[in-house]
Computed example of a mutant assay.
Amino acid sequence: MNKCLGCIYSVSLFIGIFSFTYLYFYVSTKLNLRHRPSFKTPGKNPSLLSVFNAGHHIKEIDIPSYEMDLKLMKAVEKLIRRDRIDLKPVNLEKFRYMVRPNGPCEFHNASSNFSRVLVLVKSAPDHYRLRQWLRLLMNETVGQMAGNLRMFFLLGYSKEMNIDINAESKKYGDIIQKNFIDTYRNLTYKTQMAFEWATTDCASADFVLFQDDDFFANIKNVFEFLSVQLKPEELFTGFLVEKGSSVVRDRTSKWFVSDIAFSNEVFPAYFPGGSYIASHKIVERLSYAFPYVKFIPVDDVYVGLVASKLGLAMKASHLFYFSDCDNWHSCLTCKAFT
């Protein structure tokens, strides 16, 4: 009888321990699944990506550190309020201005019927004819919006051209230049200069139109487009390459990015150079963030990278043409030369 009771006790004890263990792991698993963050797979548009990434394999985006992004967002908010921050810059200021516009960036006789638009044109030192052409085109097309628009050209240093650049600056007063060598791999420095100057020297602008010197801007359409924006301070739009395009690791390519400079194998969304428009508020936020996000030598991707860290929405628009200017009347900007 005692043996039988002992046997029953042992079996009951085993069943109890087994049931408790099973219940514990079952509940733990459910709770872990319930609280595990879910990430949506980045969307892909093969037709759009193929334009700039023909033959490149599309991979998944690595989810960036939310904590680091949050720190950067908070730091930018403090910098805008002129408060001190704890973050240390990773990009030290290396270059100084060599040429700046004559006088402050002001919108003389600006009409209250239109926004104030700053146009910043990335140009090469030897592209004088393109700059002159854009000056003439702007004067001929700006019309009654003349007081609401300012245009400046962004250049790096050229030993061969700098005497001519100084003479051009004295004549037109629309050159912005720092002493980095003007090369393709230094375009990120040129872009950083553009955002910095717009923030510090042209704070009265409502919007900034960035473009290359081989692009035309249909100024009338630009002003009409800006006038219908429901949330103008959030405007950040251009021809958008969606996130997920492959990083070029081929050292012979001008788009080469080392894994030391950028460890992810795919890029975030970005506007591919050429032309895009942002509100001055967006430009200011990006400018303050640039020193705290490591530079990469592909400037348009770098802007997209910093924008993603700040949680800024980059909006796609079909009004930026990268093929030609045949439909000039219906675009905001178009590529005039190929």
Rank of each mutant, 00 (worst) to 15 (best):
N139K: 13
F210L: 08
E196L: 12
K231Y: 15
T333R: 04
E160R: 12
L240Y: 03
Y270G: 03
S50T: 11
H329I: 05
D83F: 10
L134H: 15
D250F: 15
L187Q: 09
N186F: 10
T237V: 13
C202H: 09
F225P: 00
F215Y: 15
V283F: 06
L5S: 11
Y22L: 12
K171H: 06
N148D: 03
E265N: 14
D201N: 11
S330H: 11
V301Q: 13
S158A: 07
N179S: 07
H35C: 04
F153Q: 06
I61N: 02
K159D: 07
N148K: 02
S50I: 12
V301K: 14
G43T: 09
S169K: 09
S246W: 10
L23G: 09
V121D: 00
P232C: 11
F216V: 07
H318L: 14
I260N: 04
F52H: 06
I85P: 02
K40R: 13
K281A: 06
L130P: 00
M1D: 05
Y189W: 06
I260S: 05
G143W: 00
K71A: 08
Q144A: 09
M314S: 05
N166C: 08
R36D: 14
R135V: 14
D259V: 10
A205F: 07
Q132L: 15
S112F: 10
V306R: 01
V283W: 05
Y292P: 03
F114C: 05
Y321E: 15
V293Y: 11
P42E: 13
K88L: 08
L332V: 09
R34W: 15
V142L: 02
S246I: 07
V298H: 03
V306Q: 04
K231F: 15
A217P: 03
G16D: 03
E242H: 11
F114W: 11
I277H: 03
V117T: 00
H108C: 09
L31S: 04
H318Q: 12
Y184S: 08
A278E: 12
P101H: 03
L79D: 02
L92E: 08
A313G: 00
E106D: 07
F52V: 06
A198L: 10
F210E: 03
R81V: 05
G55S: 04
R81S: 09
N32D: 08
F95T: 13
G304K: 01
L187G: 07
M138G: 00
T252N: 14
N179Q: 04
R251D: 14
S258K: 04
Y302D: 03
K88W: 00
M161H: 14
H280R: 12
